[in-house]
Simulated assay, not measured.
Amino acid sequence: MNYATFHADGTLHQRLIKGTHEIPKGAVEVDSALWLRLIQETDGVWSITTEGKITKQPLPSAPQTREDVERLRLAAYAEPVLGSDRYFAEANRMQTMGEAGWEAVRDAGIARFHEIQARYPWPESQGAQ
C-alpha cells in the first residue's frame, strides 16, 4: 500500500510505502496507477484539492540554460528503470562475458539515449553540441 502526505498549502510533501515507512495520521492512500505517476512525472507540482482529489499543475515554463538541460539529461540517462545507462552496462557485461544478444541491448540503449535527448533539447539560443 502506498501513501502520500501533503503540506498545509496542499502541495505534495512525501510519498510513503507501508512496511517501509511509518505512515502518519492524515496520509492519503494512493492506488498503484497514481503512485507510478507520483514517482515518475516530475514535470509539475502535485497537490491535493479540498475535495481530496490529487492533481498535477504544470510547472511554469522558464528558459533553461545549457547546464539545466545537461543536469536533466544526466539524471534521465542514469535513472535505474527508464534510463539508457542500464542498457549500456548490460550490453557491456554481456559482451565481456561472451553472451549472445548484446547488440540488441546496446541498440535499445542507443534508442533510449536519443529519446532522452529529444525530450530535453538544448536551448535554441545556445545551439546543440
Rank of each mutant, 00 (worst) to 15 (best):
P80I: 02
Q40L: 12
L72N: 09
L34C: 07
E51K: 15
L38D: 06
T96R: 13
L38H: 07
G44S: 10
F88W: 10
M94D: 07
R37V: 09
I39T: 14
P80S: 02
R73L: 04
V45S: 06
E99W: 06
Q95M: 13
P80G: 02
D43Y: 03
R73D: 07
L74I: 11
L36G: 12
R71P: 02
E70T: 12
W46T: 03
R73G: 03
D85H: 12
F88M: 08
Y87F: 15
G52L: 04
R37C: 09
A78S: 11
G98Y: 08
E103V: 12
V69S: 03
I54M: 09
W35I: 00
R71V: 07
P60E: 14
T42Q: 11
E51R: 13
T50L: 13
N92V: 00
F88Y: 15
Q95C: 11
P58Q: 13
P80R: 02
G52P: 02
R73H: 07
Y77S: 07
L38G: 04
V81Q: 11
P60C: 01
W102Q: 01
W35Y: 11
V81W: 04
L38I: 09
A89Y: 09
L82N: 12
T96P: 00
R86Q: 09
G101T: 01
E90D: 08
I54H: 07
Q40C: 08
Q57C: 00
R71M: 13
E90W: 00
S61W: 05
S84V: 11
T49Q: 06
L74C: 06
R93A: 13
L34N: 08
E79W: 05
G44T: 09
Y87R: 05
K56V: 09
G44R: 12
Y87P: 04
L34V: 10
W102S: 09
R66T: 10
Q95T: 00
F88A: 08
F88L: 07
G52R: 01
A100H: 10
T55C: 13
V81K: 11
G83E: 06
E41V: 13
I39P: 01
M97S: 08
E99Q: 14
V81G: 01
R66V: 10
D43G: 13
L72V: 03
E70Y: 03
V45P: 00
E67Q: 15
L72F: 11
L72R: 12
E70C: 00
Q40P: 00
D85N: 15
A91T: 09
E90F: 00
A89V: 14
W102N: 02
F88V: 05
T65W: 02
V45T: 14
A89I: 13
T65F: 03
L72P: 01
P58R: 13
A76G: 02
P63I: 01
R66Y: 06
P58M: 08
L74E: 15
L34S: 06
R66I: 04
N92L: 11
A78F: 01
E90A: 11
G44W: 12
